[in-house]
Every structure is written in C-alpha cells, then in structure tokens.
Design a protein around this nucleic acid. Sequence first.
DNA 1: TTCAATGATTAAGG
DNA 2: CCTTAATCATTGAA
Length: 346
Amino acid sequence: MDEQPRLMHSHAGVGMAGHPGLPQHMQESSGGTDGDGRKQDIGDILQQIMTITDQSLDEAQARKHALNCHRMKPALFNVLCEIKEKTVLSIRGAQEEEPPDPQLMRLDNMLLAEGVSGPEKGGGSAAAAAAAAASGGVGADNSAEHSDYRAKLSQIRQIYHTELEKYEQACNEFTTHVMNLLREQSRTRPISPKEIERMVSIIHRKFSSIQMQLKQSTCEAVMILRSRFLDARRKRRNFNKQATEILNEYFYSHLSNPYPSEEAKEELAKKCSITVAQVSNWFGNKRIRYKKNIGKFQEEANMYAAKTAVNAASVSAHGSQANSPSTPNSAGGYPSPCYQSDRRIQ
DNA sequence: TTCAATGATTAAGG
DNA sequence: CCTTAATCATTGAA
C-alpha cells in the first residue's frame, strides 16, 4: 500500500498543476505494463471529468453522455458519493437528530387549545366553551360577544390555515424542484440518494421554521383577540337609574351591615335586571368607596334614608302601595331633614 | 380634552 | 367560595 505514495511522489513533476494525482494514473497506465485495462479506464474517465469544463457545450454534452454510459460509471459514482458522504459527515458532525422544539410544541398546544389548529368546527366550539369558562361563569348573557369572538377567531383560523397550506405547497414545490435538480445533477455530480434525502430534510426544517413564525404570530393574534374579548367584557354600561336606586336603597337601609345574603342578592339582581355577580361587584365597590369617604356619601345617605322612610310610611299607610320602586315619588329629592353638615373631612 | 364616577378585574387574605 | 383594596378602562358631564 505504500507503493502508491511513492509512485505519486516520483512522478510529481509530471502531473498538471492542481491535480497532481489524476494524470499520473494515466501516465502510469499508459505504459500498459500492468496489463489490466481497468486503470486505463479510470484514468480516462477522470481525465475527461477534469477537462469537461474546457470543452464546448455540445462537446461536453456528448462527453457527458459518453461518461454516463461508461461501464465504470456506477462504481465511480458510488465511490465518489461515499467519499463525499464521509467528508460531509465529518464537517457537519452529528447534528442530525432534531429534538422536538419545546417552543414549537408550546405554540402547537396553544393553537390546539384555542381551536385554531385542529378539527374545523369542534375546535371552535371547544374554544368558545373555554372562553365561556374563562369569562367567570357569567354565562348566557353575553352571547353577542361570544359570536363576535368566535367570528374573529375563525377568521384567524382561516388565515392561519390558508397560510399554512400556502407554505406547505411552496415547500412541496420547492422540494420537488430541488429533488429534480439534484437528480438531474446526479448524472454529473456525485449526489447520493441519501444526500438528496438530507437536502429535503434541510428544506423541510427551513420551512417548518417559517411555519413556526406563522404559528407564533397566530398565537399573538389569538392572545390579542382574547385580551380584546376580555376588554369587551369590561366594556361596561352604567346601570340604569332604577337599578342604582334599588341598590342604593338596600345599601343605605342596611348601612350597619351592608352585606346582602345570597337570596337578597338574587332578589336585587332580579329587580335590577343584572346578574348576582354584578350585585356583588356593586356592593363590593360601594362598601369600599363609602368607607373610604363617608363624607362624600353623606348627602346620598340622607337622601336614601329619607326615601326609605317615605316608602315605609306610605307602605304602612296604604298597606299595598305597589311595592316596586318604579317611580319613586321623591325622585326630585329633598336634601334631607337632617344634617347637611360638614363634608370634606378627608 | 379633562376628570370624577363607576362597573369590572385582580391580588391578597380568610 | 367570599371580602377588601387597588387598579383598570370606560362613561358621561364639565
């Protein structure tokens, strides 16, 4: 085996610049002393390969064809592929395996949970249910917002799917294009099927990173939509005057213990046509705000105290003076018989 | 445009 | 669960 290097060395001067090794075999084998025509063949082929760029196109085509038809071609091709394979592997190392990207998985999970990816209609309703659950169990009173939310979500989903499809299509197109190209070139270059495969997987990786961007931005859009939806819930309407009257009446007539029981809340909710949660909110806000600045509410307190007094009087007088505070007779409100005193304490 | 009032949400605590 | 307290975001009046 050490014969080769020595020979190469001894003939070093004879070879062409840049490719000392190749013509050498020719020289050597052209002596014909080896008897075997094989070396001659290989040398021929290599020589032709080396000079192929010097030839005119037509000539090159002819040569190419000749080379392709040469009986040694498959063997040489395999050898070159093997060498190339080894080189590539040593250069690139073993970074082949791709661990499932945790971020991508996170995005996928979220899209699935939001019903953006996944089955067409089922996902949507699941998302709506999730949104309903997230909305605090208020339930049946915000169906309009739901449909709005769902419409926007399905819009996002549609965009997402069309984009995804586009990417997939582009990926496939590009892949087949590259594959064809490589297959075509594999007639003149050492390109093994394995390498083509690898190239395809590289392409797929690239495209999937693009897809990840799509998923990312879709997630963002969903998040924004969600926060908008939550904000939509915050889009409050002030309660109407009657409702506030009723709530205030209760509040000020139970000032010593303004904590309505569950039943009381339900009744108030019904009377005000708001939800129990809203009643709770109202009382929570009222208590804290009253406590924070009693002075500011003094007037209001007096007013409602007077009103309930009047109501009570009229009820006791007339026995069945239609209950509901529909049109309080004292709407104009007289300030209050009592103190109009010093507010602005704090 | 400004700003107090107000309904809703959130965090902390029981 | 509920409450308090702080805060957010909108409303509606000035």
